[in-house]
Structure formats: C-alpha cells, structure tokens
C-alpha cells in the first residue's frame, strides 16, 4: 500500500503544482522518484512529527496542498493538538496519512500499534477520516482528497496487502462499495481487514448463510444511505475494523443506530477490545488473538443469526 501511496502522490504532483509531500524520517527510497522529478516538493522533516503538521498548516495557508506521511501512532497521537488546532480549527486542506495502521506493526509493540486513533480523530470537527482497504481504494481517496477544502486523515497499511479491486474504483469520501451480495447478514468493513470479511462470508456461505460484504472506507462522514439500507434489509449487521470497537466504525455506527430506533437489525461490533495488546506477535497472530479471522467472524455472525 505504501508503494501505491508513493506512486499516486507522484501522479498527483504531476497534475497539481500545489501538491507537496512531507515525511518524518521514514520510507527510505520510497519517494526517490518524486524527489528526482520535483526536488522542491518533497521534504523530509526528520523525527519531528508535530513540527511537520505545523509546517503543513503554514504551507496550506499559503496556497499549497500538503500531504503528510509517517507511521500512524506518531502522526496521530503525537500530533493530536497540531491536527486539532492547526489543521481542523483553521479548516485547512492538509491530508495526513498514517502508514502501518492498526496492528500492521504488531511485532514492534504498543508504541507502534494504533487501535484508537480513528476514534480520537473522528471527534475533531471538520476532519474527514478514511481507511482504504487496498491500494486501489487508497488511490481513489487520495485523488478525492484534493477535492476537499478541509483536512483529511487516512489510515493505511504497510506493504503486500491483497488487492480487492482490479482497478481504481469510482470511490469518493462518504461512499461505500459492495463487494459481495448477500441477504441474511451484512459486514461493513473498514481498512485492510477486508479480505478477512470476504473469507468469513465464504465460510458462512458453506453454512447456508448468505452474507453481503461492504467495503466502508470512510469513517467520517458516514455513508448514511448505505446504513439506512442495510439496517432495513438485514437481521444482523456487523462492523469490522482493525481498531478498537470503541469509537471507530463500530462506535460510529452504534451512535448512528441510536439515532434510528426504528431500524431493528442487530449490530455486532468486531474489532479489538479496550486494551493494549501485550502479546509479542505478528499482525496475523494478533488478528487471531482477537478473533479477527474468517472463523471467528463467521462464528459471531452465525450465533447472532440463530438468536435473531
């Protein structure tokens, strides 16, 4: 995904002279092409993330379209106030991109995990929050970032995420994409965990349960049309994210649902619990630890359908 990010930024830089990229001492060689072609449009800001966001704010106030890039916990938690005051309070068109989100860097420990940041960031007024599932969705959302007149946050994976789309989809912020049709249950999935949702649907199909899978890459603003439709059509709706069930997609949809008492589908929030992961492990093992596997998800949905 990070290669697609570098490639798409280069394409955007070619189209739009206002595009600049700031990074914080990561991504060695990743941006070599951009640096070579536009030496004045790429800036390595060092291990100083908070300063990077402030600098981006100034550049945006002076007419540029900055993209800021580094490892998710450092560009979010560490820069929370810069994002809130410099970017959101001033409603500046800066796109903040966190790489290695969720448990992508499980093995590096809690300092490198980010299972709370979407929940924290979505509270900031005027911030668009997205989590593309794969490289094509990322490209679509990066392009749409340039159509926004305010700040954007995107959480992305690292490398080697399976591609769920064969081409760049016609996707804008606030929209979702149905990848698999179904009639009994529906999974709304944000981010790179989408292939697990697809595998869970396959598993459920084997048990005679037909499951719709929706890639739901924007946390804010929510695709309310989609929510309205799925909560009217299915008995069970699951949200899926590599993020805490508090505050992220599950949290947002639960809030939305509280405002729509007339819709009586059961909501189940699948994600990480309210805790730090203390197990030394890789991303796959971390997902297993939290039941974010085809089996784990299929089980939860099957049980709920039986009760519903």
């Amino acid at each position: 995904m990070r290669n697609a990010f570098a490639d798409e930024i280069l394409a955007l830089a070619r189209q739009d002279p206002r595009v600049v990229l700031l990074s914080a001492d990561i991504g060695n060689r990743l941006f070599d092409k951009l640096k070579a072609e536009f030496p004045n449009r790429f800036f390595n800001c060092g291990v100083a993330e908070a300063n990077m966001i402030g600098v981006a704010a100034g550049m945006a106030q002076s007419g540029l379209r900055p993209f800021c890039y580094t490892i998710t916990p450092f560009i979010t938690y560490r820069c929370m106030e810069q994002i809130r005051v410099d970017l959101c309070y001033h409603h500046l068109p800066v796109t903040v991109v966190g790489t290695g989100s969720g448990l992508s860097y499980a093995s590096l420990g809690g300092t490198h995990h980010s299972c709370e940041e979407m929940g924290m960031l979505r509270l900031l007024p005027g911030l668009t929050v997205g989590g593309p599932a794969d490289a094509p969705e990322l490209r679509a959302l990066l392009r749409d970032s340039l159509n926004q007149n305010g700040p954007v946050y995107l959480r992305i994976g690292k490398k080697g995420e399976p591609e769920m789309h064969s081409a760049v989809p016609a996707l804008k912020f606030g929209q979702s994409i149905t990848l698999r049709e179904g009639k009994d249950a529906c999974i709304l999935s944000i981010g790179t965990v989408l292939p697990v949702a697809m595998a869970a649907a396959e598993k459920l199909a084997g048990q005679g349960i037909s499951t719709r899978v929706v890639s739901f890459p924007t946390l804010k603003p929510l695709d309310e049309k989609c929510l309205q439709e799925v909560f009217s059509s299915f008995k069970v709706v699951a949200t899926l994210e590599e993020h805490s069930i508090l505050g992220g997609l599950g949290g947002s949809v639960a809030e939305w649902k509280a405002d729509h008492p007339e819709l009586n589908a059961r909501l189940v929030r699948l994600g990480t619990p309210d805790e730090f992961l203390h197990l030394t492990c890789e991303q796959e093992e971390a997902r297993e630890h939290y039941g974010l596997t085809a089996e784990g998800i299929a089980d939860r949905i099957e049980t709920l359908l039986r009760l519903a």
């Binding site: 093995s107 590096l108 420990g109 300092t111 197990l279 030394t280």
Partner: peptide, 14 residues
C-alpha cells in the same frame, strides 16, 4: 527474542 508469545518484544514493552 521477538518470537510469538515471548517475554522480550522487539522493542521494550512495559
């Protein structure tokens, strides 16, 4: 060191 379930994580945990 840094293997599944090990006490010593790749970077120091609390």
């Amino acid at each position: 060191f840094a293997t599944h379930g090990a006490p010593l994580a790749e970077q120091p945990a609390p």
